[in-house]
Design a protein around this nucleic acid. Structure first.
Lengths: 328, 328
DNA sequence: TCGTGAAATGTAAGCAGTTACATTCGGCTT
DNA sequence: AAGCCGAATGTAACTGCTTACATTTCACGA
């Protein structure tokens, strides 16, 4: 039923090659010929068949973004932000974007091998086996928000150490000496960077760090509030909490309210991610802004360069920025 | 470089037809033949080329989700939730999912015509021209979170009237007579439903509605807070606000705090969407839960049925549910 | 008018599978 | 041993486009 290039060729009286060129390289076709082709095409409601084109060219202009997380994938504001960046950049470059979860990775690896998908961006907690599989199939991959030892691939991460430092500095400037660190559960790489960043920053500020002041909790407000209750109810409590997640910070603020501690008066709090909730809380939350969109865009750029065979940097670090609000 | 079915055919000593069958209909191939083919295939690291298969079969098992919004697309928790649902269901059905924005729709329509994309789910504020274009190209589409007059296509919406009614009832049960409605800016269809739902619910509850108590504002906490300040600072103020968005509700709570009104003591507030922020606010926000995930899943189901040529209901309404927390 | 070279167009061989139809195989009955 | 039949396999046409290479067209100068 569908019109093909042959139908257009017949109706317009030119060869299929010319029809093809009219659509994919019009400058090679003489003006009047071109017009005849267009007329025939619109009479037949012809549209080039993208699948056939992919087949002939052996390329699809299609990339994939795999979010490797157990729970909320795209619902996680962070990964959604990266996705938004990827999407915008992909659109700009005329790339189709397939979004999926890690469950799907074997399937995706197969698709990648047959170049139905040209390259893959992996976000989150990636298993080494997954990376190996893609590499075994000669698929170009870019890691976002993660780094992996022993693999030679481009990574895009935000500058976790800088972010932590900015938060710590902000608290120190406000006169706090006793600063606690509360981290939500993230991938080992992220947690490691953040912890290291904290130690570094505190040393630079000549402030003490005690193990009791470093807490890990789940990434829910309830869990964070619970941990914070313990941390803050002692007689000798920290005067500031550097929460490495806005949700955790919200939990800390809840605990503070329950304990009758005013924020920022009696307790200062900083968050991390600068997510939508920061301006909804009372007081509004000072938080470390991560340019997630740029992370996504950068990942696409790297992927493209890699696909073109160009050299790409192994590591791209996106700077963070502190957004000051009322919680310090 | 890449191994093809011919290479496997040669190495295993069977015809290409048998190789093809071994991969797409193994039960038609005798056990020992099958094994020989598998061996040859793994020796050559052969994987079927999905593009060629798509071409031969004229089908791709690929669908698209187009988010038609100006600003934050996938960053909007609501559309992200729908996306999550679509993604899960698509994975389960072995469909590839392309995610894009409305900017891309002409391109997508062309892809759809050549069946590179088999069907499309449109979310958000869809222009009639867009729908016409897809229909003109014989593409099956499903609308999610929207309905359009004059077009014959399946729609998935949440039961806005029910949601508003649940919120209004909850407030009425708590003894409130003077209930104000605050709506964020959404598509005409949604706003219409919500307003109608409010009028209905208030009538059923035999409560008065005055124009002064119905407010439209932007979907930001700041804008909502500003509107709420006006609404609540008069001497004869409403005792409850039915906010049709959690962000708006957060704005209302901010205004209440500024005015020294305690929530829920002096002012009750309900939100809408039951988003992640509900449990972060103080007090936690009573909100109408929309099963966005199910909306997404349903959209995929409808799309599939439609693609199979089966009849699909024009309208699927997903029920809402009130989640009671501390703000009433 | 003819020759020349660049530009425009045509011919046909891919791209990598699927599958209708034809053929062969192998076990069973007579 | 011949005949038969269904299962297994093979042959080759087909999907719709691109493009290397061959051929034609055309403008321009000699």
């Amino acid at each position: 039923m569908k019109a093909t290039i042959y139908d257009v060729s017949r109706l317009s009286g030119v060869s299929t090659a010319t029809v093809s060129r009219t659509f994919s390289a019009p400058e090679q076709v003489r003006e009047d010929t071109r017009r005849r082709v267009y007329e025939a095409a619109s009479a037949l409601k012809y549209t080039p068949n993208a699948i056939a084109r992919d087949m002939a060219l052996q390329r699809t202009n299609r990339i994939a973004y795999l979010i490797c997380k157990r729970q909320a994938t795209i619902l996680d504001e962070f990964y959604a932000g990266i996705c938004e960046g990827i999407m915008r950049r992909a659109n700009a470059l005329n790339l189709q974007l397939i979004v999926s979860t890690a469950d799907d990775w074997r399937q995706m690896a197969a698709n990648a091998q047959s170049k139905q998908v040209e390259g893959v961006i992996l976000g989150g907690d990636v298993a080494p086996a997954m990376v190996s599989e893609f590499q075994a199939r000669n698929t170009f991959i870019v890691l976002v928000n993660n780094r992996m030892e022993g693999f030679d691939l481009p990574c895009v991460v935000s500058d976790e150490r800088q972010g932590i430092r900015q938060a710590a500095q902000c608290l120190a400037e406000a006169g706090h000496r006793r600063i606690a660190l509360m981290m939500g559960g993230y991938s080992p790489f992220i947690v490691g960077e953040r912890y290291a960043g904290f130690i570094e920053a505190m040393a630079a500020l000549r402030l003490p760090v005690t193990d009791a002041d470093v807490t890990m909790c789940d990434r829910t407000a309830a869990s964070a509030a619970e941990s914070a209750m313990k941390l803050l109810s002692g007689p000798d409590r920290p005067t500031a909490v550097l929460a490495v997640s806005d949700v955790v910070a919200a939990g800390v603020m809840k605990a503070a309210r329950r304990l009758g501690l005013s924020v920022p008066g009696e307790l200062a709090v900083t968050g991390y991610d600068d997510s939508a909730i920061c301006t909804l809380l009372e007081p509004e939350l000072t938080s470390v802004h991560i340019d997630v969109r740029r992370m996504g865009e950068t990942a696409v750029n790297l992927l493209c360069r890699g696909l073109e065979g160009e050299d790409t940097p192994r590591l791209t670090v996106i700077p963070t920025q502190l957004t000051r609000r009322g919680s310090v």
